[in-house]
């Protein structure tokens, strides 16, 4: 999922300082799962902003809505009525959702409440880690299911580098060396011979090269 975290509340408040009424739009997708922008977080932020503004003697009316997901424009449509009479929309979605909301309401001030961080998962409740660098051509079948693009600090394709020490990466004693993990797993699988295959330079044209990427499935496009 996409992992995001809420911006400091003072920063969010500053973005809507001149507004009297705002809509806080949550998202029940990834950001709900990573506890940054779901129903609950949306209501907490609304409450906190109302309190903050009331204390400043400049009360704010803050209404809330949580879309099934904001990364599919059709789920933003039900917000139309709520958006009509607000001065701004604070989106608690990832950057994708914020942009779709801004596109749908060209005359509205639309601001992000979250910082979109990375693609990953949770190790335990409340802790998330980065797992994929969205490189555009997955090579996990060559690396024992461990991503060297994002989990190796240098994105090395033929690791480890000389900085690998007792299983840790040289950047920090808290970071596992991805290539040590790959070696350990390949060994356990009896496939160490695979590691002798030299990985050719990666085709980065499939990554973010030449502007934003698009994915198309002709067979499912509805004319």
């Amino acid at each position: 999922m996409i992992i995001a975290q809420q911006k400091p509340i003072k920063e969010i408040a500053a973005m809507i300082a001149d507004c009297k009424k705002v809509l806080l739009a949550g998202c029940q997708g990834c950001v709900a799962v990573c506890l940054a922008g779901g129903d609950k977080e949306t209501e907490i932020l609304a409450s906190a902003l109302r309190i903050m503004r009331k204390l400043e003697g400049n009360p704010l009316e803050a209404v809330t809505y949580a879309a099934t997901r904001q990364c599919d424009p059709e789920y933003i449509v039900p917000m139309d009525d709520l958006v009509k009479d607000v001065d701004a929309v604070i989106s608690l979605a990832c950057g994708v959702g914020v942009q779709y909301v801004a596109e749908r309401y060209p005359d509205k001030w639309v601001v992000p409440a979250l910082d979109t961080k990375f693609i990953g998962g949770s190790t335990v409740h409340g802790v998330w880690e980065e797992k994929c660098g969205l490189c555009g051509e997955c090579i996990l079948h060559r690396t024992g299911g461990i991503c060297p693009i994002i989990r190796c600090s240098k994105s090395i394709l033929n690791g480890p580098c000389g900085g690998s020490q007792y299983g840790k990466c040289e950047v920090s004693k808290d970071v596992d060396c991805a290539w040590q993990l790959i070696y350990d797993r390949m060994k356990a699988l009896g496939r160490l011979d695979k590691m002798m295959e030299i990985q050719m330079p990666k085709d980065w044209s499939k990554s973010r090269d030449g502007g934003p990427r698009r994915a198309v499935r002709e067979d499912v496009i509805i004319e």
Partner: peptide
């Protein structure tokens, strides 16, 4: 912590 941040 949040109450401190928002001034209450």
């Amino acid at each position: 912590k949040l109450l401190d941040e928002i001034g209450l």
